[in-house]
């Protein structure tokens, strides 16, 4: 049988998917052992025990200085910024997208501006945000909004335009005015597409969040990683990176599930 027609069974698929992960772990442990044997003080590739120790310190014991459990405090701070930022982006993207996609005059006025704004590299204006909004929460949230909203706006506009012309005509023959078409035909149909756009923006949102936290913050997952970098604390950095990856993965999965649950008609006709 040709290679292109051979498919792994479910069990085989799980095994071959696990193999690269297992290989990574084995390679890490081997080199970690080699380095630690040469120099027990080595910090670059910590042993499993140091990881366990660091995780216990960060996730289960209150910090001596602040009395807070650092991992949870960092996670709460970061997720709050992420959710506010992405929430504002979603709201702006939805509103602008529906208006831009539906109303030619609105789009004639605003589409060019959104297009230009979306070309500005968000990190390049981070200093401006710090100068204008200070080093507090606001500038971090604004960076996330600036980094994700233009994409969501343009994506929503595109999705609205993609709705079959027939449906919009049909609604008009059912005596719907512009507002009614927006409320009953356009908005409900782009809702699941908004969820998709937000889900795909989460990666960018994390990027801008960690960038902002790295530069000016007092807590947060990105802040912690960049803080302990000074002490080469790989035993803290790697678990934090794994934790951020897990959070991103869970958020993505949650958005998928929520979309399928809220919009049962969606998905099959994509």
């Amino acid at each position: 049988m040709r290679l292109i027609n051979q498919r792994p069974s479910r069990g085989a698929a799980i095994i071959v998917a696990a193999l690269p992960f297992a290989a990574l772990v084995v390679i890490y442990l081997t080199f970690s052992d080699i380095r630690l044997e040469a120099n027990p003080q080595d910090k670059l590739l910590p042993s499993v025990e140091s990881f366990a120790d660091a995780i216990r310190r960060m996730a289960f014991e209150p910090s001596v200085r602040t009395g807070k459990i650092l991992l949870w405090a960092d996670t709460a701070a970061s997720l709050q910024r992420l959710f506010i930022g992405i929430g504002v982006s979603a709201l702006a993207g939805f509103t602008f997208g529906v208006l831009n996609g539906m109303i030619p005059w609105f789009s004639a006025a605003w589409s060019p501006l959104v297009r230009v704004l979306s070309m500005i590299p968000p990190i390049a204006i981070l200093p401006i945000l710090f100068i204008m909004f200070g080093l507090g929460e606001l500038s971090k949230v604004v960076l996330i909004v600036f980094g994700t909203a233009p994409f969501i706006m343009r994506d929503m506009e595109q999705r609205v335009r993609e709705l079959p012309r027939e449906q919009i005509v049909k609604a008009q023959t059912l005596d719907a005015n512009t507002w009614q078409i927006a409320v009953r035909v356009v908005a409900p149909q782009v809702m699941p597409r908004l969820m998709d756009a937000v889900r795909l923006s989460l990666g960018a949102a994390w990027l801008f969040l960690i960038a902002a936290e790295a530069i000016a913050s007092t807590e947060g997952l990105g802040y912690r990683i960049f803080l302990v970098r000074r002490y080469l604390a790989m035993d803290v950095i790697l678990p934090y990176v794994a934790w951020i990856t897990l959070l991103a993965f869970l958020l993505d999965a949650a958005f998928r599930k929520l979309n399928a649950f809220l919009f049962p008609w969606y998905g099959t006709n994509r």
């Binding site: 449906q167 005509v169 049909k170 023959t173 059912l174 005596d175 149909q189 008609w265």
Partner: peptide, 17 residues
């Protein structure tokens, strides 16, 4: 388009949601 003329197209006439 208006309410005095009803319409059925070949496709996409109904609302999928």
């Amino acid at each position: 388009p208006g309410k005095d003329r009803g319409v059925v197209f070949q496709r996409y006439s109904v609302f999928p949601h």
